Computed example of a mutant assay.
Amino acid sequence: MDTVTLTGNNNVLNAVLGVDASGHSVATLNAFDSIKGAANSTGNTLNIADSSTVAQVDVIPATLSNIQTVGLTTTDNAGSVGGPTVFDVSGLTNLTVQSAGNAGDDIKAATTTNVTDTASGGGGATISGGNAVTVKANGSISVTGAAGAVAVTDAGAGPNTITVQGGTTVSAAAGAVPTPLRRGFFMLSRNGPKGQAITT
């Protein structure tokens, strides 16, 4: 068990996950670890890097307090779409994810958390909550319950589906064709003509 206590503002911590002989990542953070920023501090960032060569999912098991921003760079995924694991970052102000796994990212965030997710693997992305949400994924994308502006791009070859529910403003692009959408529930399907918005 490790407890890291920070002082002042604008601290940056880097957690690099080790890789064992079989290619699996070795946890740098576990459920007994705690990272605490100073009371009322701002600008604190935790960066996590996972370069495992075996398909896994990444979570944050450690307890975070007064850490405003998390950045995850992984050869795997943040959570897993359709699986039991969700990447829960409800206590953060900002989350940035760059993933390359094929299981898809599955992220849960508070409506005060800005989320930027770039999922270059083939599994797409599912975002629940968030404030300003920006997603670029190779595969289908689902964003529900966002409180702020939503911008999504399906970078895959398709057929994929973009589904957005919520958001103050929504813009979506299937391939290179952007489509501004009104607030509400919309589906932009790669099965139909590019740029076609369907209200349900």
Rank of each mutant, 00 (worst) to 15 (best):
V164D: 00
T161E: 08
V115H: 08
I107K: 09
G167D: 06
A78E: 10
V86R: 09
A49T: 14
N94H: 04
G166D: 03
T42Y: 07
L46G: 07
S25H: 14
P178V: 04
A147I: 06
A119C: 06
N131V: 03
T7M: 08
F87V: 03
A49G: 07
A151R: 08
V164M: 09
I198L: 13
V150F: 10
G82P: 03
G18C: 06
N10V: 10
I107T: 14
V57E: 11
G166S: 04
G122P: 02
F32T: 13
N191A: 03
S171P: 05
R183P: 04
D88T: 13
V152H: 00
M1S: 12
T53E: 10
G82A: 14
D106A: 13
N10C: 10
H24I: 14
A173Y: 00
N77K: 06
N30P: 01
Q56H: 03
Q68K: 08
M1C: 10
T28S: 11
T153I: 09
A39R: 09
A125Q: 03
T134M: 12
N11P: 13
G192Q: 11
T199I: 15
I60Q: 04
T116Q: 13
D58F: 03
F186G: 01
G130P: 07
A49N: 08
T161K: 04
N40D: 05
